[in-house]
């Protein structure tokens, strides 16, 4: 008997591999991950199924599904997978592919914009400035927030890696 490996979507396989998801092929669909997944217990997200979809190269279905964003990256599945599939790395790679195709959740845009504009994931509020001062900390922490040259450096890095296009 001659066994032929059928590659459903070699382009996608290569793209996923390039982004750190090559080991998805190690998954033998035992379902341990889904059984232990706290997100799957609360949502329609099924991590075993996502791994299968990735193996089959179902790119259009993957980039369009909301469930891709319901993984909290808790690593429970990674700890217990008998094949040591780097599941979280694969989820991250799939999300990167989705975002590159314009599938970013509207609720995630502000965090991306915050990083791009001030170098932090959350904004600086007047309230926190007061609270900081009241306990003897400088109003603004000594990060990129305090140094426009450092922020300019960070912006260059974000632009050089294409983050400006994600934010727009």
């Amino acid at each position: 008997m001659i066994l032929t490996e059928i590659k459903a979507n070699p382009e996608f396989e290569a793209q996923l591999a390039k982004m750190g998801g090559a080991d998805v092929k190690m998954c033998f669909q035992c379902g341990t991950c889904t059984a232990d997944c706290p997100s799957g217990r609360r949502t329609s997200y099924r991590v075993r199924k996502l791994m299968r979809m990735a193996q089959l190269g179902l790119k259009d279905e993957i980039v369009d599904c909301e469930e891709l964003w319901e993984c909290t990256t808790c690593y429970t599945c990674v700890e217990r997978c008998p094949r040591q599939v780097p599941i979280v790395d694969i989820v991250i790679a799939l999300r990167n592919i989705a975002v590159a195709e314009g599938h970013m959740l509207a609720n995630h845009k502000p965090t991306a914009t915050n990083l791009y504009t001030i170098g932090h994931a959350v904004t600086v509020t007047d309230k926190v400035k007061e609270q900081r001062k009241a306990i003897g900390l400088p109003e603004i922490p000594p990060t990129v927030l305090m140094n426009s040259n450092a922020m300019a450096d960070l912006t260059k890095i974000l632009k050089a890696t294409g983050f400006d296009k994600i934010v727009e």
Binding site: M19, G20, W69, V91, I92, A93, R95, N96, V99, A100, M104, H108, T111, A112, L115, A121, I157, L158, T161, G162, F163, I166
Partner: peptide, 9 residues
């Protein structure tokens, strides 16, 4: 979030 948007960034 950020790593999920762009691993390179």
């Amino acid at each position: 979030v950020i790593r999920a948007f762009s691993r390179t960034t």
